Simulated assay, not measured.
Amino acid sequence: MQTVTLKVEGMSCGHCVNSVEGAVKKLGASGKVDLSGGSVTVDFDESKVSLDAIKEAIEEQGYDVAK
């Protein structure tokens, strides 16, 4: 298992939290959003899902993942 914290811009409410955490969960990972900090901490198995796929899933929800 690998844990990473990603800076995510554009999150401002509970719906944002649900969107981001749901997108990560669909990939088989778990995510915990820190709304006030503008970040999400993701635990994932790198043999099953890539970090790029996680970033892409978050961006597909309409948020920007800092590079």
Rank of each mutant, 00 (worst) to 15 (best):
C13W: 07
V40G: 00
D45G: 04
A53S: 12
E21A: 05
A57Y: 01
V20W: 01
M1N: 07
A23D: 03
S50L: 07
V65Q: 00
S39F: 10
F44N: 05
L27H: 13
G10T: 12
G10A: 13
A66R: 05
A57C: 07
A66M: 04
F44L: 07
K55T: 04
K26W: 08
H15L: 11
V4G: 03
V65S: 00
G28E: 02
S50T: 13
A57N: 09
E9P: 12
S12I: 14
L51Q: 12
L6G: 00
D52H: 09
N18C: 05
G14S: 05
M11I: 09
K25D: 09
E9V: 15
E60M: 12
A23N: 08
K25H: 14
G14L: 06
V49D: 02
A29I: 10
K55R: 15
G14R: 09
I58E: 00
T5Y: 06
C16R: 01
V17F: 01
G14M: 04
L6K: 05
A57K: 03
Y63W: 11
L35I: 08
V42E: 00
K26C: 04
G37M: 05
S12K: 15
S36C: 08
K48D: 02
D52R: 15
V42I: 10
D45W: 11
T5P: 01
S12H: 15
A53V: 08
H15C: 11
L6V: 04
S30P: 08
S39Y: 09
D45A: 09
K32F: 11
A29D: 03
Y63I: 06
S47M: 09
S12A: 11
V8T: 12
E9W: 15
K26P: 01
M1P: 06
I58K: 00
D34K: 12
T41H: 13
E46V: 08
K67P: 10
S19K: 15
N18G: 06
S39G: 12
V20K: 04
E9G: 13
V49Q: 03
